[in-house]
């Protein structure tokens, strides 16, 4: 099945992602920033779908938009004092931060301009129907062999366990 109106979808999703990114860093109200970040995450998920990565799209929906953003919203409602929306938004070092970010942007632009010819114009069509099976093969392994990333997968689950324990212990009132 041929993709439909691909450039249009790309420009809409990319524009939405960048516009919401600007809204994340400039809004005074923290909940507005969180909602803008949700829009950014959903647009980036759409871009993953366009890149023929349906499993990463699902992981992004589940973990980022459905889990991490809920965590952020809970914490914002827990610590949000009314006066915080009437205070200064940017800290005292904001000129230095802006200069550093501009330097970073200049670095990116120079890398892109110089390396423009390095990126081939071909886009290999990854088989989308077996995407999940192939990722599972890399993560869990084929029957009879261990996968290439199985060890890293186990370490990642240990990392999550450590994070859970850390978050629980840090927020207890009496250890």
């Amino acid at each position: 099945m041929a993709p439909v109106a691909t450039p249009w979808f790309f420009y809409v999703l990319a524009g939405l992602a960048v516009a919401s990114g600007v809204a994340v860093i400039t809004r005074r109200n923290a909940v507005h920033s969180a909602l803008a970040l949700i829009v950014t995450l959903l647009s980036v998920a759409g871009l993953y779908l366009m890149l023929y990565a349906p499993f990463v799209f699902a992981v992004q929906l589940f973990v980022y938009a459905g889990g991490i953003m809920l965590l952020f919203l809970f914490v914002i409602m827990l610590v949000n004092i009314e006066r915080s929306s009437k205070e200064r938004r940017f800290n005292r070092m904001w000129p230095a931060g802006l200069v550093a970010a501009c330097a970073l942007m200049a670095l990116f632009i120079s890398a892109f301009v110089k390396g423009r010819t390095l990126f081939p114009d071909r886009m290999i069509l990854l088989p989308e129907s077996s995407n999940t099976q192939q990722i599972a093969g890399l993560l869990y392994g084929e029957p009879g062999r261990i996968g290439q990333y199985t060890f890293a997968f186990e370490i990642a689950s240990l990392l999550l366990l450590v994070a859970i324990l850390g978050a629980v212990i840090m927020t207890k009132k009496k250890i």
Partner: peptide, 20 residues
């Protein structure tokens, strides 16, 4: 191809509406 994952992921977005 990821129908059931899509359904579970999108229904977890409904929680955000309630909290907000």
């Amino acid at each position: 191809n990821i129908g059931i994952l899509f359904m579970l992921g999108v229904s977890s977005l409904g929680v955000l509406g309630i909290v907000v």
